[in-house]
Design a protein around this nucleic acid. Structure first.
Length: 910
RNA sequence: GCCCUGAUGGCGGAAUUGGUAGACGCGCUGGACUCAAAAUCCAGUGUCCUUAAAACGACGUGCCGGUUCGAUCCCGGCUUGGGGCACCA
């Protein structure tokens, strides 16, 4: 093996690692643990493109680095295989999801294996595997069997709640009421408390997908998957009481080493707002009824000129007068016909209808009309608001449209054109609040309301309970059956409840499982919905710890060893979905004592997206002539995507292009400098733009080590960037140079000679740099440092074992195949994976210069570098010309320069 | 509208976070080796002025201003790319 033959090397070591189980791990108390996790992929039909492995490469480098540092590293991989996309793909290709999923998985695995990851594949999980989803179902049953105790602020077994109902009563349910209730009534009462519960609410119904969706699966009124319109519908669905955990999910964010932007996204999603609930008495045709509203601006209560109800509010029928009934019904009908998307698009159109009833302002006793409008949401607060048009832009727009009065409450504010929403200024027209600063007035008003029994302080969250059922086939069946209409748990010992085989599962309006004959348990009908995609991904990180355990999700002892994920790498797109759900899921399991950490992911790094880099050719309109990029301004041209495989460094392979499509077979070209230069643009990587780069192709032409190095060299991990093959030769060249450091065409060059000082310096500079950079996730700069070191050592003709051996270890996290080969060639029998990370000796890396802090009259101002050998008088001579710089101190003259050799320069000025 | 982020040569990106801006790589130019090419190696490469060439000098981190002896970095105001949230009372 004279030259660097990456193909032979990579095949050889991938086989070796697999056969020897090199990356198997087990609990080992003699070593500190480290858990590195990738967000497991959804095995889609398109296979991996070059963007997918970016995060995996980074986490693999970190895992390998930690192993060298002596950690026991858990680094697993698996597949998120249940859910809508797999089912949609299966329907599109006319195959069974089970088949497409396992085909896709096999394909993914083949692609992943080529890149040389150090996964412990013996721990692989698949969410669609009954052995896995047994524990998804189990967790659901635990949630079904628990309630959230607000006093303890944690989940507890529902049996404790039942005991309370029986003995002392709770929440208005007296012991007698409970005892006399029927099974059905008891079940209905408990449903209001269970963590996993069935409830009738307004849900996102997606006709195109034939199922309901959770909030994070909907964007701009369209389904995230396939972009079908979504409408609000009242339906009875299984839900998870995520909202009960809103406060804890928010508070413990502070403890996590996540990026600020991601934490901010979660904070926004949880949406905490502290305000006041206030009771307004209402009158409808003589009948009186209290209505509670929520506001964050209790200080503006003197400016209330009307009230508004959400169209879906339960209060609407109670507060509609007979006179207005027709108008109201017309309006409700109109609201119903609008899809969620239309509602969003028309945020500026103001609609509404008067109910015919009135509310009484509890502070002023003033009577105000009650309206209905879609700008008030039924799901937030109480579904009813007090409207203060002067200081809320939405109320303002409504008041203008329907000619309702506007009363300004802040001195000097101008509300003739728009409302004054800012929380600043002095109050007026506000009774006892007059003259107060707004911020103080808010507090004073809250105090007043509480003191006079008109309401109470209340914290609201925007986070909603998660809709947990899907009217689809490819998901976990609910372990629930209906005994005389009462939802009942399938006993734990009968799990998993296996998804029944079906040939046709296309959405027909009827839920697929309802078409399965004998979908029953002990003769009772089973729940026919299945669980959503996020169910299986909510606790998979726990299952990796103990993937083959049939008695527990994770054994308590094993869990106490691995505890939590130390480093989690994945995309930001999961910020409001998976990353909320699994935190919730984990906290729930923690409450019940099944896991020992209440947060699952200690540190989280978001890798950026890799975008495609498309190339264009320019056809002169109406001809079959193509003009090179630099000359196209002289012609009227059409831009056409060209397959990037026909382009090298933006130069078109003209013959290849002609052969690409019959249409271009006899095309003409207007060249510049004898070449056809293509234009380019950054776009999403997709087949239709002919810009998809397959990692397999890179492995074929350059090798996996080059691919790994190059993906990291492209730029900072977190940043999104286009894939640009233009620079890949550089890192490939580096590996070849690295190889030649060890041997020339015929011989191995490594000797046992003592290294020189200069050689040791290069090595130790690199050790230091790599250590610092990897810990900071700055892999691109490490690679730069490597290139410098290799260039230097090549120039020195360094063939010293004492330098080259540690160098191999340093390279192994980045380019494991070549490192493994060289490691063995150097005479080692063990694998480089468990070599020791070379120890940094500062003395070797020490610079020949000394950095002196320069002080003026004892105050540090700047630093100056001087050769280590310089004598104090030489240093002083070098400093003297800085007199000009010294002028700012106020005096013009350097009186004295004090040099403490190797330490400090103090310049005394007068 | 609100909240995060970014903006540095022809390109991707460095810069010990207030101390020599442009590391490293790509590309480009010239040279060596070769019959030739590929591969490899060497040198040069921010802009402008001066020059045979350089040195020296001036200007340079999206724009305008500020703080500082000194600003890619800190402050204020804009322009602009990317992402998130959006009738949440």
């Amino acid at each position: 093996m004279a030259d660097y033959d990456f193909k032979a090397i990579e095949t050889k070591w991938q086989k070796y690692w697999a056969e020897n189980g090199t990356f198997r791990v087990r609990e080992d108390d003699s070593k500190p643990k480290f858990y590195v996790l990738d967000m497991f992929p959804y095995p889609s039909g398109a296979g991996l493109h070059v963007g997918h492995p970016l995060g995996y490469i980074a986490s693999d480098i970190f895992s390998r680095y930690k192993r060298l540092k002596g950690f026991n590293v858990l680094h697993p991989m698996g597949y998120d295989a249940f859910g809508l996309p797999a089912e949609q793909y299966a329907i599109k290709t006319g195959q069974h999801p089970e088949k497409t999923t396992s085909d896709n998985i096999a394909r993914y695995r083949r692609q992943l294996d080529r890149i040389g990851f150090s996964y412990d594949w013996s721990r692989e999980v698949r969410t669609c595997d009954p052995g896995f989803y047994k524990w998804t179902q189990w967790a659901f049953l635990k949630m079904f069997d628990s309630w959230y105790d607000p006093d303890a602020d944690k989940a507890r077994p529902i049996s404790e709640l039942v005991a309370r109902f029986e003995s002392t009563g709770y929440n208005g349910i007296a012991p007698d009421v409970w005892k006399n209730a029927s099974d059905k009534e008891k079940s209905d009462i408990l449903m209001n408390y269970r963590i996993a519960y069935q409830g009738e609410t307004s849900v996102n119904w997606c006709e195109g997908l034939g199922t309901v969706l959770a909030n994070d699966e909907v964007k701009d009124g369209l389904s995230v998957r396939d972009g079908f319109p979504v409408e609000q519908k009242k339906m009875k669905q299984w839900q998870l009481r995520v909202s009960a955990y809103a406060g804890r999910l928010l508070d413990s964010l502070d403890r996590l080493a996540w990026t600020d932007s991601l934490k901010e996204m979660q904070r926004n999603w949880i949406g905490k707002s502290e305000g006041t609930e206030m009771v307004f008495n209402t009158i409808c045709e003589g009948r009186e009824m209290p209505v509670t509203i929520f506001t964050t601006r209790a200080d503006t209560v003197f400016g209330v000129t009307f009230m508004v109800l959400a169209p879906e509010s339960d209060l609407v029928p109670l507060l509609t007068s007979s006179e207005q009934k027709e108008e109201v019904e017309k309006y409700l009908k109109y609201v119903k016909t609008k899809t969620e998307r239309e509602r969003i698009m028309e945020t500026r159109t103001v609609t509404g209808v008067f109910t015919g009833s009135y509310g009484i302002n509890p502070l002023t006793g003033k009577k105000v009309p009650i309206w209905i409008s879609e700008y008030v949401l039924s799901g937030y607060g109480t579904g009813a608001i007090m409207a203060v048009p002067a200081h809320d832009s939405r109320d303002y727009a409504f008041a203008r449209k329907f000619n309702l009065p506007i009363i300004p409450l802040i001195e000097g504010c101008d509300v003739s054109e728009e409302s004054f929403d800012a929380k600043e200024g002095k109050m007026c027209n506000s009774g006892f609040l007059d003259g107060m600063d707004v911020k103080d007035a808010i507090e004073a008003a809250k105090d007043y309301v509480e003191a006079h029994g008109l309401g109470r302080r209340k914290t609201n969250y925007r986070l909603r309970d998660a809709i947990f059922s899907r009217q689809r086939y490819w998901g976990e069946p609910f372990p629930i059956y209906y005994k005389d209409g009462v939802a009942t748990a399938v006993p734990e010992e009968d799990l998993p409840l296996v998804l029944p085989p079906m040939d046709s599962f296309k959405p027909t309006g009827e839920v697929p499982l309802a078409r399965v004959k004998d979908w029953t348990y002990k003769g009772y009908p089973l729940e026919t919905s299945t669980m959503p995609g996020f169910a299986g991904s909510s606790a998979y990180y726990l299952r990796y710890m103990d993937p083959h355990d049939s008695d527990a999700l994770v054994d308590r002892k094993v869990n106490e060893y691995w505890r939590d994920v130390d480093l989690y790498i994945g995309g930001t797109e999961h910020a409001t979905g998976h990353l909320i759900y699994s935190r919730f899921w984990n906290k729930f399991l923690y409450d019940l004592g099944y896991v020992c950490e209440d947060e699952p992911f200690r540190k989280l790094v978001n890798q950026g997206m890799i975008q495609g880099r498309s190339n264009f050719v320019y056809r002169i309109v109406g001809t079959n002539t193509f003009v090179s990029y630099g000359l196209k301004k002289d012609y009227d041209t059409t831009e056409i995507h060209v397959d990037i495989n026909l382009v090298t460094n933006d130069k078109l392979d003209i013959e290849g292009f002609k052969a690409w499509s019959a249409e271009y077979a006899d095309a003409d070209f207007v060249l510049e400098n004898g070449e056809y230069i293509c234009g380019w643009a950054v776009e999403k990587m997709s087949k239709s733009m002919y810009n998809v780069v397959n990692p397999d192709d890179i492995c074929d032409t350059y090798g996996a080590d080059t691919l790994r190095l190059y993906e990291m060299f492209l730029g900072p991990l977190e940043q999104s960037k286009p894939w640009d093959t233009n620079g890949i030769d550089g890192v490939n060249r580096f590996l070849k140079k690295f190889w030649r450091l060890f041997r020339d065409r015929e011989n191995w060059l490594v000797t046992d000679e003592e290294p020189t000082k200069a050689e040791l310096k290069e090595l130790h500079k690199l050790i230091k740099k790599e250590q610092e950079d990897i810990e900071a996730f700055s892999f691109n700069t490490t690679i730069s440092a490597f290139m410098i070191a290799v260039n230097e050592l090549t120039a020195m003709k360094c063939g010293k074992r004492a330098v080259l051996e540690p160098l191999v270890v340093l390279l192994s996290p980045f380019a494991p195949h070549i490192a493994e080969e060289l490691w063995h060639q150097l005479g080692h029998d063990d694998t480089v994976t468990f070599a020791r990370f070379p120890e940094f000796v500062p003395a070797y890396a020490a610079e020949d210069t000394v950095t002196y802090p320069v002080q003026f009259n004892g105050k540090m101002r700047f630093t100056v570098d001087m050769p280590r050998s310089a004598s104090p008088s030489e240093v002083e001579a070098a400093i003297r010309p800085m007199e000009q710089t010294a002028r700012y101190v106020g005096e013009q003259k350097i009186v004295k320069v004090i040099v403490v050799p190797g330490r400090i320069i103090n310049i005394v000025v007068k």
